[in-house]
Design a protein around this nucleic acid. Structure first.
Length: 471
RNA sequence: GCUCCCUUCGUCUAGUGGUUAGGACGUCGGCCUCUCACGCCGGUAACAGGGGUUCGAAUCCCCUAGGGAGCGCCA
């Protein structure tokens, strides 16, 4: 059997991390088994579906690199087919028309709740002849006895008694088909062999299997993946911070980091933590996914992101960094090659946003010194080291403005003054960077360049004098 | 309320009758060192509770507790 999986989001918002993970699992499972992955947009809810959401979902999938073999298919373009199926069901007596008014449905529901029963349609119209010309919905005639067994690839065997299931609506009174009908028809028509979806759908599965069976189809295999929780144990939502996939991109995360993080949420391969997409395609199997929900943990995502920033090709990172520098009003062409900056800074940043922030000093003079750094290092004692280092740097030829030469200058000044290297390097660092943290002082000076270095040392000396005069 | 599901360090997980219960993130300590990181070394920390089954249970069974999902003319 050829494996065919699908991702079937409804376009009512952005692609969020939970959806991205089920899409990833579906994608990996298909790739792993040499099958196909199809994308289907479930836009039958005309009220809430938007084109903007469709674009956002496509954008998210594209960024993550989850390419699909077929689609996107749109359910709104298949209404004719759905209605034909519903009519067929009606003809064969497997579905019936129902004109129960809303208030009746509510009354039944309230009575059932009061009697401590599960609220469900009572089958009032099952044997009535409702006039097709009058407003009505079409309901599925669910079997009244027996059990439906879901053989879930993740959960195992889950039996449902048919008496627990009621007659769900297949076609609304406005003539549009409902979700449970459309998925079933699409999964059958599209030859989906494995339905991988969130476990909020487990309770729908027996109903869908019943419809499939009534239609004469063999139900696909199902795998319900557990959901992702926020730090408070509640279902992950906007109030837990970023949930949309593209938001992570904008926050400076790499797609491979998010993929790696998401796949490890509920799945593992021994003690391995780092996985490339190719490795995942080779190793992933849906049956290895855990049954329990897991908590989204930004710390670990950060660690992975830093790992990937550090180990990815510096040229690529430099390219991805450019828009983030742009947000800081920095034009990379006005300073050192961004690739050199990335090589120097990659180990220091958890995100591209952070990388841009700590690298801004390479391109532009900073506004203010970081207060505690200035307080600690830009003191009168630093005046002489700064003056001497400035003099030496001034004499250094532009051609010698390289790590080795710069290192020697700082070292020589420290020796001449009979002080530790830090007594020279730290004031110099604060003078040039504005804060007490940066790459090695030689690398830092190299990136800043001669002119800016001298200019900033002068500014620091003036700062020290002004401060001394003040006290 | 009813149906279904879940339960190993704070978090993600390994583990499928016999392990000092392993790894990772975080955290703490140390090394490296011109700073911050990186890297390296080390510490901390878990089988929800109770009954069984068994010579022996994190692993099998039952109960309890806790958590979650679903119960729409939403998907």
């Amino acid at each position: 059997m050829t494996v065919r999986t699908r991702f079937a989001p409804s376009p009512t918002g952005f692609l969020h991390v939970g959806g991205a993970r089920t899409a990833l699992f579906s994608y990996l499972f298909a790739r792993r088994h040499g099958g196909e992955f199809v994308l289907r947009i479930e836009d039958t809810d005309l009220e809430r579906s938007t084109a903007a959401s469709v674009n956002a979902i496509l954008e998210g999938m594209n960024w993550l690199g989850l390419d699909y073999d077929e689609g996107p298919f749109y359910q709104t373009e298949r209404f004719e087919r759905y209605n034909a199926v519903i009519d067929e069901l009606l003809e064969r007596g497997l579905a019936y028309r129902c004109d129960c008014p809303k208030d009746r449905l509510e009354r039944v529901r309230d009575m059932q709740m009061a009697a401590k029963q599960k609220p469900r349609y009572d089958g009032h119209c099952r044997s009535r002849q409702v006039d097709p010309a009058q407003p009505h919905v079409v309901r599925f005639r669910n079997p009244v006895d027996g059990v439906v067994v879901v053989e879930d690839l993740i959960r195992g065997r889950i039996p449902f008694a048919n008496e627990e299931l009621d007659d769900l609506v297949l076609r609304r009174s406005d003539g549009s088909p409902t979700y449970n009908l459309t998925v079933v028809v699409d999964d059958a028509d599209m030859g989906i062999s494995h339905v991988i979806r969130g476990d909020d759908h487990v309770n729908n599965t027996p109903r869908q299997m019943n419809i499939l069976t009534a239609l004469g189809y063999q139900p696909p295999r199902y795998a319900h993946v557990p959901m992702i929780l926020g730090a408070d144990g509640m279902r992950l939502s906007k109030r837990h911070g970023a949930v949309s996939v593209v938001a992570y991109r904008d926050l400076g995360y790499l797609p491979e980091a998010l993929i790696n993080y998401l796949v490890r949420l509920g799945w593992s391969h021994g003690d391995q933590e780092i996985f490339s997409l190719d490795e995942l395609i080779e190793l992933f199997d849906i049956t290895d996914v855990n049954k329990s929900a897991s908590t989204f943990n930004t710390d670990k995502l950060d660690w992975l992101n830093q790992h990937y920033i550090q180990h990815a090709d510096a040229k690529r990172i430099a390219r991805l960094l450019s828009p983030h520098l742009g947000h800081l009003d920095i034009d990379p062409s006005t300073g050192p090659d961004p690739v050199a900056v990335v090589e120097a800074q990659a180990a220091r940043a958890k995100t591209l946003v952070e990388l841009a922030d700590i690298s801004a000093f390479c391109y532009a003079d900073f506004d203010d010194y970081e207060p505690t750094a200035a307080k600690k290092h830009l003191r009168p004692v630093a005046r002489e080291p700064l003056q001497r280092v400035r003099a030496e740097l001034d004499m250094l030829a532009l051609a010698d403005w390289q790590d080795a030469g710069l290192h020697r200058v700082v070292e020589r000044v420290a020796e001449a003054l009979g002080v530790a290297m830090g007594k020279v390097a730290q004031p110099l660092r604060v003078a040039v960077v504005g804060r007490a943290a940066s790459p090695g002082i030689d690398v830092t000076l190299r990136l800043v360049g001669k002119a800016a270095t001298l200019r900033r040392i002068d500014r620091a000396l003036a700062f020290i004098d002004a401060r001394a005069a003040q006290s």
